[in-house]
Amino acid sequence: MQKLKIDQDIRSMSEVRNAMAAYIKQVHDTKRPVIITQHGKGVAVLLGANEFEAMQEKIDLLSDVQTALNQLAKGEGIAHQTAKAKLLKQVPQ
């Protein structure tokens, strides 16, 4: 996902409602989200499906990393050599 450009990517609900196809094309072409406002406050984000999927994958990965870090902090980890040996046992030779 590209960085947000404030002057181009923040639009009011009425602007988006009146030109939805144009904003969907903008999101697709620029790979940037459009922030939709109502009464001057952000209420929604229009995001391309591929960008959303990539974001979900990153969140899942970061969640797994955090879980692993928490396990290590609790002393639940195993030594590198032990993990390597367990994995090699599972791989057919």
Score class of each variant (00 low, 15 high):
residue 1 M to N: 09
residue 2 Q to L: 15
residue 3 K to T: 11
residue 3 K to F: 07
residue 3 K to W: 00
residue 3 K to E: 13
residue 4 L to K: 03
residue 6 I to N: 08
residue 7 D to Q: 10
residue 8 Q to N: 14
residue 10 I to E: 01
residue 11 R to Y: 06
residue 13 M to Q: 14
residue 13 M to I: 15
residue 14 S to A: 08
residue 14 S to T: 14
residue 15 E to W: 01
residue 17 R to V: 10
residue 18 N to W: 06
residue 18 N to A: 09
residue 19 A to K: 10
residue 21 A to P: 01
residue 21 A to D: 15
residue 24 I to G: 02
residue 24 I to D: 06
residue 25 K to G: 00
residue 26 Q to V: 00
residue 27 V to R: 01
residue 28 H to Y: 14
residue 29 D to W: 12
residue 29 D to F: 06
residue 30 T to H: 07
residue 30 T to D: 08
residue 31 K to N: 10
residue 32 R to F: 11
residue 34 V to Q: 03
residue 36 I to A: 05
residue 37 T to Q: 06
residue 38 Q to C: 15
residue 38 Q to L: 12
residue 40 G to I: 10
residue 41 K to L: 11
residue 41 K to F: 06
residue 41 K to P: 01
residue 42 G to V: 02
residue 42 G to S: 15
residue 43 V to C: 13
residue 44 A to S: 13
residue 44 A to W: 03
residue 44 A to T: 07
residue 45 V to Q: 03
residue 45 V to K: 13
residue 46 L to H: 01
residue 46 L to R: 02
residue 49 A to L: 13
residue 50 N to L: 07
residue 51 E to K: 02
residue 52 F to L: 13
residue 53 E to G: 02
residue 53 E to N: 12
residue 56 Q to V: 07
residue 58 K to F: 01
residue 59 I to K: 11
residue 61 L to G: 00
residue 62 L to C: 01
residue 62 L to A: 04
residue 63 S to K: 14
residue 63 S to Q: 12
residue 63 S to I: 05
residue 64 D to S: 08
residue 65 V to N: 07
residue 66 Q to W: 04
residue 70 N to H: 07
residue 71 Q to H: 14
residue 71 Q to S: 15
residue 72 L to C: 09
residue 73 A to C: 02
residue 75 G to R: 04
residue 76 E to Y: 00
residue 76 E to K: 12
residue 77 G to S: 13
residue 78 I to W: 03
residue 79 A to T: 09
residue 82 T to D: 15
residue 82 T to V: 15
residue 84 K to W: 08
residue 84 K to Q: 13
residue 85 A to T: 11
residue 87 L to G: 12
residue 87 L to A: 10
residue 87 L to C: 07
residue 89 K to N: 14
residue 89 K to I: 01
residue 90 Q to M: 13
residue 90 Q to P: 00
residue 90 Q to D: 07
residue 90 Q to C: 03
residue 91 V to F: 04
residue 91 V to S: 06
residue 92 P to W: 01
residue 92 P to N: 05
residue 93 Q to S: 09
